[in-house]
């Protein structure tokens, strides 16, 4: 029952190997799952935290998502995208579902209001090894138009629907739909994402 491989330190699997690990996980291999945890837990937690803005809820969601990965690893379909994208899609949906539930929304308003009175920001400590990735993402986000960037930010990092996004930005629905799409396409090209 013990986490294995912990003392080997975090070793991010190279391309393709997360898929291999999931294959082993689907056969009940806990050691493989431990490696999956190492590879994805930080991103799942960080994303959940961005959307939910609450450490306890973010951890719950992270736990739920990882257990779901264990539960349904056999249903990962490599034909539909990478293992990482599959897991992060689970994570995003889970976080978004929670934030859209009425109670969570009420909490979120409160937290957002509290946040308005805070100094610059709370969450700036960072992992050195993530810096390059972040820098690249930031540079690419910088190449979007302001409306593209705002739309992607609200939808992905806040969990807003495109209707809510349009409301918040005071923009037509059709415009937001289009900006989400062409904004992501520009990001895709800038980041060199292939599929």
């Amino acid at each position: 029952m013990h986490a294995v491989a912990r003392d080997n330190g975090p070793v991010a699997p190279g391309p393709g190997s997360l898929e291999t690990l999931l294959e082993r996980v689907s056969r009940g291999d806990q050691q493989a799952f431990d490696s999956v945890y190492t590879a994805v837990a930080g991103s799942v937690l960080g994303l959940a935290h961005r959307v939910l803005r609450d450490p306890a809820q973010s951890e719950e969601v992270t736990q739920e998502v990882l257990i779901e990965v264990w539960r349904s690893a056999a249903r990962f379909d490599a034909g539909r995208g990478s293992a990482m994208a599959w897991i992060m899609t689970l994570a995003h949906r889970r976080a978004v579902d929670r934030v859209r539930s009425a109670q969570a929304s009420a909490d979120r308003e409160q937290r957002a209001a509290a946040r308005d009175h805070s100094p610059a920001f709370d969450e700036v400590s960072e992992q050195v090894e993530r810096r390059l990735e972040r820098e690249q993402v930031r540079r690419c986000l910088g190449q979007l138009t302001e409306l593209q960037r705002e739309s992607v930010n609200l939808a992905y990092y806040r969990g807003y629907t495109y209707r809510e996004t349009a409301d918040v930005l005071g923009t037509a629905l059709g415009t937001v739909k289009t900006r989400l799409r062409d904004g992501l396409i520009r990001l895709r090209d800038c980041l060199g994402v292939t599929s």
Partner: peptide
């Protein structure tokens, strides 16, 4: 676009608390 969104998730990764694993 999902692979692209995944990169947005990497960019906000944080260190999980020790007990979570």
């Amino acid at each position: 676009l999902r692979e692209t969104a995944t990169r947005l998730a990497f960019a906000v990764a944080q260190v999980p608390p020790p007990g979570l694993r």
